[in-house]
Simulated scan of single mutants.
Amino acid sequence: MYKVIGLTGGIASGKSTASAYIEEQGFKVLDADVYARKVTEKGSPGYHKIIEAFGNGILDDDGNIDRPALGRIIFNDPDERQKLNDISHPEIRRMMNADRDEYVKENHVFLDIPLLFENGLDKQCDATVTVYVTEENQMERLIERNGLTKEDAAARIGSQMPLSEKKSRSDRVFDNNGDKADLFRQIDEFLKELQNDEM
């Protein structure tokens, strides 16, 4: 019987690096962000609902949703963020669940979901894993990676459940305060346990 593993983390915690590595090892990783982009694709039902909710100011010159413009609205206002979530999450969930049910017939499946605990999706998983870094490292990496100001970085980190809380709610933690080799070693160990059904 194959398992569904919920994989989460915070912005700039290294979750994408972990996801990519797990995929390289031959496992299917369903990324909520990929589905989120599909929901905002030009012409999709989600696209029209989002414009209706946030206005034409979030569109670029080609009529696509300008994600950074939308980000500036939702990362600084919990009510606006909730509005977007109410539109996009049911659609993301529907698409992801259909794919998960298909792939889990053949192998273990990882669900890469930033808001795994916030949206109660951990209850649909056989096990949960958090990619963890300290808040100092998270802040430093985010500023470096996205060229954000300290204030913007703090707003983005503050808009998410603290990693310390995700860590305490997870079945397993990948500590990513070290280097990539250390992260990959922890993942290898976990995948081995999964394959040997020691989970």
Rank of each mutant, 00 (worst) to 15 (best):
Lys3Gln: 09
Ile5Phe: 08
Ile5Met: 04
Leu7His: 01
Leu7Asp: 01
Thr8Leu: 12
Gly10Val: 08
Ile11Pro: 00
Gly14Asp: 11
Gly14Pro: 08
Ser16Gly: 14
Thr17Gln: 03
Thr17Leu: 13
Ser19Trp: 03
Glu24Tyr: 03
Gln25His: 05
Gly26His: 04
Asp31His: 08
Ala32Tyr: 04
Arg37Ser: 13
Thr40Glu: 05
Lys42His: 09
Gly43Met: 10
Ser44Val: 07
Pro45Gly: 03
Tyr47Arg: 05
Tyr47Cys: 14
His48Lys: 08
His48Tyr: 15
Glu52Asn: 12
Ala53Ser: 13
Leu59Val: 06
Asp61Met: 10
Asp62Leu: 11
Asp66Phe: 09
Pro68Phe: 09
Gln82Phe: 12
Leu84Pro: 00
Asn85Asp: 12
Asp86Ser: 05
His89Phe: 13
Pro90Val: 10
Glu91Gly: 00
Asn97Met: 15
Asn97Thr: 10
Asp99Gln: 10
Arg100Pro: 00
Glu102Phe: 12
Glu102Tyr: 09
Lys105His: 12
Val109Asn: 05
Phe110Pro: 03
Asp112Ile: 09
Pro114Phe: 09
Pro114Asn: 07
Leu115Pro: 02
Leu116Ile: 02
Leu116His: 01
Gly120Phe: 12
Gly120Ser: 09
Asp122Lys: 02
Asp122His: 13
Lys123Cys: 12
Lys123Pro: 02
Asp126Gln: 08
Thr128Ile: 14
Thr130Val: 15
Val133Gln: 05
Val133Lys: 03
Glu136Cys: 01
Gln138Phe: 02
Glu140Thr: 13
Glu140Cys: 13
Leu142His: 02
Arg145Cys: 15
Arg145Ile: 04
Arg145Glu: 13
Asn146Leu: 11
Asn146Cys: 12
Asn146His: 05
Leu148Glu: 04
Glu151Tyr: 00
Ala153Met: 01
Ile157Met: 08
Ile157Glu: 01
Gly158Trp: 05
Ser159Ala: 15
Ser164Leu: 14
Ser164Glu: 15
Glu165Trp: 09
Lys166Ile: 13
Lys167Trp: 14
Ser168Met: 14
Ser168Arg: 06
Arg169Asn: 10
Arg169Trp: 10
Arg172Leu: 15
Arg172Asp: 10
Val173Phe: 05
Asn176Cys: 13
Lys180Ala: 12
Lys180Asp: 06
Leu183Ala: 09
Arg185Tyr: 14
Asp188Pro: 06
Glu189Met: 06
Leu191Thr: 01
Gln195Asn: 14
Glu198Thr: 03
Met199Ile: 07
Met199Pro: 00
